[in-house]
Design a protein around this nucleic acid. Structure first.
Length: 118
DNA sequence: CAGATGACAAGAT
DNA sequence: AATCTTGCCATCT
């Protein structure tokens, strides 16, 4: 697995009607300061599993778009609105929808082994 | 190895 | 507020 299973594990923890920023997922995944790797992992991996990738947005509360997402650039927003999240001017209230990870998860952030010098 | 890219984030202008 | 620039680094070419 050349990707980061941690990232998918974290994203899966995001509850319904909540969102998390790439930076937040990154730090929860042990990639503090490397939000790009998160986006990259989702972009590259984007497993057809139950990964609620649509609950991951940028730090500005906006939904990132890309010319080659799924054909529909608004797909992510549509999915979020389907969960009860209300958008305003193309943005949402992070203060209102920001996912607050459980302490049990925060505690593991400092327990993540990077890699063993096998 | 070297150059370029990206579903980001924070700072400066 | 919008744009430009830098930082970060795995991945692609």
């Amino acid at each position: 697995m050349s990707c980061y299973p941690r990232i998918y594990d974290i994203v899966r923890q995001i509850p319904h009607g909540k969102v998390a920023t790439y930076g937040q997922v990154a730090e929860l995944a042990g990639l503090f300061g490397k939000p790009r790797v998160v986006g990259y992992a989702l972009y590259r991996g984007a497993p057809e599993q139950e990964i609620p990738w649509h609950r991951v947005i940028n730090a500005k509360g906006e939904v990132s778009r890309s010319a080659f997402r799924d054909g529909s650039d608004d797909l992510q927003q549509l999915l979020l609105e389907s969960e009860g999240i209300v958008f305003e001017l193309g943005k949402l209230s992070l203060a209102q929808y920001r996912w607050q990870p459980p302490r049990s998860l925060l505690a593991q952030i400092q327990q993540i082994p990077k890699s063993d010098p096998g």
